[in-house]
């Protein structure tokens, strides 16, 4: 399931990231913020009004805000 479709407040694990679909600087910043396959992730909040964009997610112990377009490149699996 792509990160932008992940239900809120449910713990998941990153399965893969489609680096090719991201501009270089975004991929790089994503990596340095700790986005890697195998890392625990949780969608926390969706943006304002009718847009519901950007998202705030928890990665490890850090909270990161990102746009749904970037989130769509991140494939996750809900932990059971």
């Amino acid at each position: 399931m792509q990160l932008d479709h992940l239900p809120l407040n449910q713990i998941a694990v990153i399965r893969s990231i489609d680096w090719e679909s991201l501009p270089d600087h975004e991929g790089h910043r994503l990596r340095s913020l700790g986005f890697e396959p195998g890392v625990t992730i949780e969608a926390l909040h969706k943006g304002i009004l009718m847009w519901r964009d950007p998202l705030s997610v928890r990665v490890g112990r850090m909270t990161v805000a990102l746009r749904t377009k970037v989130a769509a490149a991140i494939d996750c699996e809900l932990s059971t």
Binding site: L33, P54, T63, V64, L66, R67
Partner: peptide, 11 residues
């Protein structure tokens, strides 16, 4: 064409 938003939100 595009802008990007990717930022850490501190406690």
């Amino acid at each position: 064409r595009t802008s990007s938003f990717l930022i850490e939100m501190p406690r």
